[in-house]
Computed example of a mutant assay.
Amino acid sequence: MPSFICTTCGVGYAPSDTPPQSCRICSDERQYVNAGGQDWTTLAALQATHENDIRELEPGLFGIGASPQIAIGQRALFIAQPGGGVLWDCTPLVTPEAVAHIEAHGGLRAIAISHPHFYASMVDWSEAFGGIPIHLHADDRAHVMRPSERVTHWTGETLDLGQGITLIRCGGHFAGSSALHWAGGAGGEGVLTTGDTIMVVPDSRWVSFMYSYPNLIPLPARAVARIAGAVAPFASDTIYAGWWDRVLRGDASARVRASADRYIAAIAPE
């Protein structure tokens, strides 16, 4: 049986003979159902019409997207490390070419995902590398549409994955929305990968924070302050959000603080 994949959000569901009646992820107020109605695809169908787009972003870090774009168009990040690296976030498309590229750079030891909109084909990615663990925050357990023994629900505020990689629960967009800190990134100055828990905006000197991006629902000041506080202990020079063009380079830690202050000031009562 195939895992049906929502064409709007790209999230895969538990294998079934027929597609679900609706996508629970898109029915949530943070997302939306296409005006044309609910529609589904499968991994096999995507493999027949798409290919993975793989780019080296800096030494030891590769972006993995899809061409043409699928669903909301995010790209994953592969941090290559000795003994197996980490795949951060997920895309609906898994191809033999992408697997071979990762294997040629040391393989994978774990997958970690920022929030439910990026769960995508996470189980297929795991199985392609022998069933490696998928680390999701337990606060988002209810949003897992394809349960699997590969999924590990971590708890608390941080999770150390070893070799300088730490998961950080930020909250905000979802209760378990997380970022990943890679201490060795940016030439040792530190990289923060954020999905859209912290979003680099078109003016790439700044970031922002939202409860819903497509529906333009903001977060309250306390949530924004929490997000900024959660990542403050992790020195970072560069932020990679969930899309190719959303990158902030240079003194990222200070830019997050300044962006949070700007946001909170903008929503303060007059």
Rank of each mutant, 00 (worst) to 15 (best):
S204D: 06
C170V: 11
E127T: 01
L216R: 15
I198R: 06
R262C: 00
A241T: 05
L46P: 01
E29A: 12
N52R: 08
G63N: 15
C9A: 00
H115C: 02
D203K: 00
L61A: 01
A98L: 04
Y13M: 01
M145R: 15
G164V: 06
L108R: 14
R226C: 08
M1R: 13
V86Q: 04
A80C: 01
G63L: 14
A14M: 07
P220A: 03
S253C: 12
D251H: 11
G185N: 11
Y13W: 03
Q163V: 01
I113L: 11
A66R: 13
A66F: 04
W206V: 11
G65H: 15
Y263R: 10
I168R: 15
F174W: 08
Y13D: 07
H115L: 05
R169Y: 05
A179N: 14
I239T: 05
R141Y: 05
G156R: 07
A260S: 09
A265Y: 01
G106W: 14
D39N: 09
T197N: 03
L216D: 06
Y211I: 05
T91I: 15
R141C: 04
A268C: 09
S126D: 02
A98Q: 09
T42V: 06
Y240S: 05
D89C: 13
P220E: 04
A228F: 07
V99Q: 15
P2V: 06
L192V: 07
L93A: 13
I5A: 00
G63D: 14
G195Y: 02
G190T: 04
T42H: 02
E149L: 09
V256K: 07
A225Y: 01
L219S: 05
P92Q: 15
D196T: 08
Q21D: 14
A252W: 02
A186G: 01
T8R: 08
G171T: 13
R55S: 09
T42M: 05
F4K: 02
S259H: 01
L93E: 10
S236Q: 04
A45E: 15
E149D: 15
M145C: 10
L61R: 13
G188P: 00
I239D: 04
A76L: 13
A183G: 07
A45Y: 11
P220Q: 01
G63W: 14
A265H: 05
R257N: 06
P214R: 10
A80R: 07
E127D: 03
P68R: 07
T152R: 15
A112K: 06
R55I: 10
P147W: 09
G250S: 06
A179S: 15
I134T: 04
Y119G: 02
